[in-house]
């Protein structure tokens, strides 16, 4: 397991380098000149001023040098100074990150628990009324657009019923109940797809496991259904489920951009979008790198889980 973990760690490192490179390149490929936009705001764009700013931002150096400078500084926790806000990008990210983590983690947790449970019930009670209802709901959930569901929830629970605040974000350590109430609708609209896909994948993966010979062996031993389901079936279905959870992390991080804007939450997604509009390339590449970091991290955790679940992978 140690060898396996080490190998995966090296893989992760390599991927991270590639990610940082791609982020840097993608941001540089964006049209527009950040210096001009910056000067437009302060309204004194003389050629001398432009040249001076270029030197200040390090934009006069060749691209590979710029990249290296950025990576070396980023590793020390310095992402540069945001062009728009004139404060360090890292503090912008640090402010936005908890919001996104809170949102995505809630959505991931809800989708994992509800999806796995629903999928398990569907598979074990296959062909029953309950299975049919849940399967139809799951199919529906996959097809509903997230932002539309968000607006629908806002209209129903926020506007018509007035049960929940329609937008905003509060840190749980400031006002716990308020933060939970504000999180319900965004988390639900965000995880709708993930719940549905988890249900569907869990159902089909469990149905496949149930037909395996070793499950018949377990029945032939006289074990109780509960033991068979949790010890034999679920564990074997877990590989597929864990893979899906990894996919869900990527998906949630991508979708939270939309949700944060619909519900007006000051998260990483909103920071990304706003940075693009403001041509704030410093904040943009910093925030993109952080998102990339989380995705690479989730992949690493998924890989480690494979080893933990399956001895054949562990001892490869």
């Amino acid at each position: 397991m140690t060898v396996y973990t080490l190998r995966k760690l090296i893989h992760t490192g390599i991927v991270l380098i590639i990610v940082s490179f791609l982020v840097f390149i993608a941001v540089r490929l964006l049209p527009g000149d950040p210096v001009l936009i910056y000067l437009n705001e302060t309204e004194n764009a003389t050629p001398e001023k432009i040249a001076q700013l270029r030197t200040e931002f390090g934009l006069d150096k060749p691209i590979p040098i710029q990249y290296l400078n950025w990576v070396i500084n980023a590793m020390q926790g310095d992402f540069g100074k945001s062009i728009y806000y004139d404060i360090s990008a890292i503090s912008l990210i640090a402010e936005a990150l908890p919001v996104t983590i809170y949102l995505c983690l809630s959505a991931l947790l809800i989708s994992a628990v509800a999806g796995i449970l629903a999928g398990l019930i569907c598979a074990i009670r296959r062909g029953t009324y309950l299975d049919n209802v849940l399967t139809v709901l799951a199919n529906l959930g996959v097809t509903i657009p997230k932002f539309w569901l968000g607006f629908l929830l806002i209209y129903l629970f926020g506007y018509q019923l007035g049960w929940l605040p329609i937008h905003g974000y509060t840190h749980p350590w400031d006002d716990f109940w308020m933060s939970v109430k504000q999180m319900i609708m965004p988390a639900l609209s965000l995880c709708c797809f993930a719940i549905s896909s988890t249900t569907r994948i869990t159902r089909s993966s469990i149905l496949e496991v149930v037909q395996q010979d070793y499950i018949r062996t377990a029945w032939a031993k006289g074990l109780a259904e509960r033991t068979i389901v949790f010890r034999h079936v679920l564990r074997n279905g877990l590989i597929t489920i864990v893979t899906l959870l990894g996919v869900n992390v990527r998906f949630l991080l991508g979708q939270c951009v939309v949700i944060e804007i619909v519900f007006n939450m000051p998260g990483l997604g909103r920071l990304l979008v706003e940075s693009i509009f403001r041509q704030d390339y410093i904040a943009l590449q910093g925030a993109s790198l952080v998102v990339g970091l989380f995705i690479v991290l989730s992949n690493f955790i998924v890989d480690i889980s494979y080893g933990w679940i399956d001895p054949r992978i562990r001892q490869e």
Binding site: R216, K221, R312
Partner: peptide
């Protein structure tokens, strides 16, 4: 009662030894 018979009073050996054991346990 049926579970008590399975494995306890009557046990089975299956055809496929490669797939009849749980690979994860």
């Amino acid at each position: 009662e049926m579970r008590g018979i399975r494995g306890g009073k009557i046990s089975m050996i299956f055809q496929e030894p490669m797939t009849s054991l749980n690979p994860l346990l």
